[in-house]
Design a protein around this nucleic acid. Structure first.
Lengths: 247, 247
DNA sequence: TCAAGTTTGTGACTCACATCACGTGCATAT
DNA sequence: ATATGCACGTGATGTGAGTCACAAACTTGA
């Protein structure tokens, strides 16, 4: 199973330049934001660059976890699959996000399946190396803790939405969540979700049937709450959506 | 709001003995299991003992978080409330569990409401003090990380159940989860959930209407899958339930 | 030990949402 | 251009589970 992790990846051509690239990236990355730059630099030297093609499964639920990945480019999806093949999308992650970080924390197997939505470039950080490094730099631990904390909060939010909100509310929440990762602000507070999303994806995040998501989305489009700009969804009235997603 | 946190608590009578009690507890507590005993001891000296009466709200969603609590005795419930007053129970925690730990990680406000189900005895650990201590003892951070990791895994499991399992499956999952915290093993692998639970509690955890939980529970009782022993639920066939809760 | 409250069991009704079943548009390959 | 395939839109239909409404069975405490 170890193989699975490395099999899809390929080392980048020039090692030196790759490290530089990773460093440059990590320094302004979201996931390492707040970490002093020398720490980020040191950490990046532990990372092993790799590329995955769109659709590649990075690891699956139940695999042993031996490290985590930073997303440098492209996007990954984190999901849970049911026996019947239904999918619950937990998150779509883009550049700057960390994925598979749970494995660094306890030694337990992967709790979800992660695959590449688009071809992606990653930096793999080995568990042992990470621990060695972090033990000497508690700031790294603190930082990690805040990332995991955020994930936990988000998970709770989603669960709350699933418990309390009717379908439209959940769709609203999903759009807002996506806008946090992929949103580009336009004029007036309008937000463009700069990412190719199928209705099926949204449905899998919101935990709803695709058909019904379609209905909701069209109602909103007709009401001017959202629009589509050359294939991308655009939130015309984010405030309205926030209202709809309020518990 | 700060007041809220301290108002319901009362310092224990003899400080010396209280500290000893906390120490003794923390050493075999679940939440600090795996931490070397001298660290646990030092940590316990940072804790401030307090008692809360049944029903007391320790803190509410949105309150600023200034520290976390270890449950020494009694039990607490962690829940999210909707506007309409509906409740989604996230967890019921007993002796040895840590509650409110998210506040230690990032500085954000409380993400859930915690209240005492039964009168409880707690140990409060201040955020600043904790950080000071943990910075010098990275093992504490690592330990913390594994606790939060477990929470996150659990949250994902619940979300998955909500997405994929029909009502009976969710009830099964809930019972199994409760048996993890409060279960006493009997002969044959039967497990007694040694805790007074109302159907309403179970329903709030499973995210279902109380009436339907009642129906499911009775079906199972009739089928010999569970039973009630002097008011406590007893899992006669945990394996069957695990099957029912499988995704 | 009796009354007042709370928790439970069960039937009947309702409804939000999933499912089914197509039609339509727009891609990419042939 | 034309076929083959996806992503989308929309009605019709079915159903799991929520809601309502009580009666029965327990706690509790005065």
């Amino acid at each position: 199973m170890l193989v699975v992790v490395f099999q899809p990846g390929k080392a980048l051509p020039g090692k030196g330049s790759a490290v530089a690239e990773i460093q440059k990236f990590l320094q302004n990355s979201f996931s390492l934001e707040g970490l002093s730059s020398d720490l980020a630099e040191q950490l990046s030297s532990l990372a092993r660059p790799m590329k995955v093609a769109a659709g590649t499964i990075l690891f699956e639920n139940g695999d042993p976890g031996n490290g985590c990945y930073a997303v440098l480019e492209g996007s990954m999806k984190v999901s849970i699959l049911s026996i019947e093949g239904d999918e619950q999308l937990l998150a779509v992650l883009g550049p700057g996000d960390l994925v598979g970080e749970l494995a660094l924390l306890d030694g337990r197997p992967r709790s979800a399946t992660v695959s590449a939505l688009k071809a992606a470039q990653l930096a793999f950080i080995d568990k042992a190396a990470f621990e060695r490094f972090a033990d000497e730099n508690p700031a790294v631990y603190r930082h990690m803790l805040s990332i995991v904390g955020k994930r936990l909060r988000q998970a709770n939010d989603v669960l709350a939405a699933r418990s309390f909100l009717p379908l439209p509310g959940r769709v609203a929440q999903t759009l807002l969540q996506l806008s946090e990762t992929f949103g580009k602000p336009l004029d007036d507070g309008r937000v463009l979700i700069h990412y190719k999303l199928s209705q099926a994806d949204i449905a899998n995040m919101a935990g709803a049937a695709r058909e019904n998501v379609s209905r909701v989305l069209n109602d909103w489009k007709r009401a001017g709450i959202i629009s589509r700009i050359s294939g991308y969804y655009c939130l015309e009235q984010p405030e309205w959506l926030k209202q709809a997603a309020a518990l």
